[in-house]
Design a protein around this nucleic acid. Structure first.
Length: 500
DNA sequence: GTAGGGTTAG
């Protein structure tokens, strides 16, 4: 076409370009190169190219193309802005999205329902409920997509009350809306509401089933989850990788290896075995259920392995108590990330191999790999168990120096470490500086004071904890009662116990 | 061109 000059024909050129953006044999660069061969690209061509960027995981290139488009002679049409808004949504760039929103108004597309619905979605995924609602409220024509989009905004924000209200106001509660509500109920421990809604529905699809199964799974009702999966299979619903990954997680947590094996068979039967997420879920399921050999077979035969597969194998071996084998995988893996290091380090700590814990952490330093909070918790707890105060102090200094946030877990572990090493003041300093405290944080202080013979102070901390409205647990009472026993404080012990 | 479900590694 270039040689014959047909490329100058904008319509013919646009067919060529849309062929290249739709064909897997051409990459984005080719399509963009093609654009520059076209003398007068029209709106259709620009839209096709920008859509291709969104579809091919390069939303960051859309805005640049849009700028070129504005500079050229072609004008934006009602298709243009939804693509750009979608690109901003994918990039979670509210800043960009707002600018497109301004252009929408400027070019007069602000009554196009596609444009408005896409805007609602963009503000929603960017977490700006306010503007999502504003667009929704100002829109003169609302369809089921608008309603589902604003519902999704509240669902994503976890605002159960408002979501319920929207759902009740909806004229058309279709499957998509109900599915979102089931998932929302499940996430906020309202399994009964989820099930009631599920029962009321007259059209259930694979997403509905996934939502209810995952509701049970998230609330620890693994047997129910598996039961629903079986029931789903009695209807003629084609399983997909999402529902399987959910139900495999239920198998792992309840150590249902028999059911897991059946699902493994199903995966092979329906040909979903090339999904790396499923491979990893299977590896995790087998190693959680104690069948590390099956996990290893999958790993060795697997064509589709990734970083998570390797890390899963390491953690699987550690879960089975095979520390040496875990180390073998750790040493053999081509690229270790912070999770690999962290898994191995905490594995050593969990199997009481504290010197190996510290050794590996040191090696991590030597290789200049930045640990994260989880790594630090493992290392500090190893220091606590070894009473390695110097090492612990060094890690604490390291945390301060490198600008790590002392979160609940790191803080609690630090308190525990200092208490075990007899540094009460430093422990209390850490406690006082913490922004958020959990029951475990208070326990670390209460137990630490008790163990160090400061029974009165320990009891004082306990009443302070109650005043703050923090709920004590068994560990709190075991610590308190031990302290009372040592100090002969029978009455205090009795009172503390019975009042709870 | 717009709306729904998920987990797997510490």
């Amino acid at each position: 076409m270039t040689i014959t000059g047909f490329i100058k024909d904008t319509f013919a050129a646009s067919r060529l370009l849309s062929f290249s953006t739709n064909s897997p044999f051409f990459d984005l660069d080719y399509s963009r190169w093609l654009l520059h061969q076209i003398e007068n690209p029209n709106g259709f061509i620009w839209n096709a190219l920008m859509r291709a960027c969104v579809q091919r995981n390069s939303p960051q290139h859309c805005l640049q193309l849009y700028k070129l488009m504005l500079r050229s002679d072609s004008i934006a049409d009602n298709y243009t802005h939804p693509i750009l808004i979608q690109a901003s949504a994918i990039r979670l760039s509210e800043f960009e999205g707002k600018q497109i929103h301004c252009h929408v108004s400027k070019f007069g597309f602000d009554s196009d329902i596609y444009v408005l619905n896409t805007l609602i979605n963009m503000y929603s995924v960017c977490g700006n409920l306010c503007d999502a609602r504003l667009v929704f409220d100002k829109s003169l024509t609302l369809d089921s997509v608008s309603w589902n989009s604003i519902l999704a905004a509240y669902v994503q924000a976890g605002d159960v009350e408002e979501a319920v209200q929207i759902f009740n106001q909806m004229r058309e509660r279709n499957t998509i809306a109900a599915n979102s509500m089931i998932a929302l109920y499940g996430k906020y421990n309202r399994v009964d509401d989820a099930r009631k809604l599920f029962n009321r529905m007259d059209a259930r699809d694979i997403v509905t089933w996934t939502a209810i199964i995952s509701s049970y799974e998230q609330n620890g009702m693994f047997a129910e989850a598996l039961k629903m999966f079986t029931e789903m299979n009695s209807y003629e619903i084609l399983v997909d990788e999402v529902v399987i990954v959910t139900v495999l997680s239920a198998c792992s947590q309840t150590e249902a290896v028999k059911e897991g094996e059946v699902i493994h068979g199903l995966i092979l039967k329906v040909g979903l075995d090339s999904y790396v997420n499923l491979q990893n879920a299977l590896i995790h399921m087998y190693s959680s259920c104690g069948n590390i050999n099956a996990a290893r077979r999958l790993f060795e035969l697997g064509d589709y392995l990734d970083q998570i597969s390797w890390n899963s194998m390491i953690s699987g071996y550690l879960k089975c108590g095979l520390v040496e084998e875990a180390r073998g995988f750790f040493d053999a893996m081509p690229q270790k990330d912070v999770v690999s290091w962290s898994t191995m380090i905490s594995g050593y700590a969990q199997h009481d191999q504290f010197s190996e814990t510290l050794e590996l952490f040191n090696e991590m330093q030597v290789r200049a790999i930045r640990p994260d909070e989880t790594t630090l918790v493992s290392v500090i707890s190893a220091c606590a168990r070894l009473s390695a105060l110097e090492q612990g102090k060094w890690v604490h200094a390291y945390i301060k120096k490198n600008g790590f946030r002392i979160n609940v877990f790191v803080g609690t572990t630090l308190i525990d470490m200092y208490m075990k090493c007899g540094c009460l003041e430093t422990a209390l300093e850490v406690f006082n500086e913490m922004e958020k405290r959990s029951t475990s944080t208070w326990n670390a202080v209460i137990l630490g004071l008790a163990v160090n013979g400061l029974v009165k102070e320990s009891l004082e901390k306990f009443s302070e904890m109650e005043k703050c409205g923090v709920v004590p647990n068994e560990i709190t009472f075991v610590g308190l009662l031990g302290a009372c026993r040592h100090a002969g404080l029978v009455d205090e012990g009795r009172r503390g116990c019975y009042s709870n």
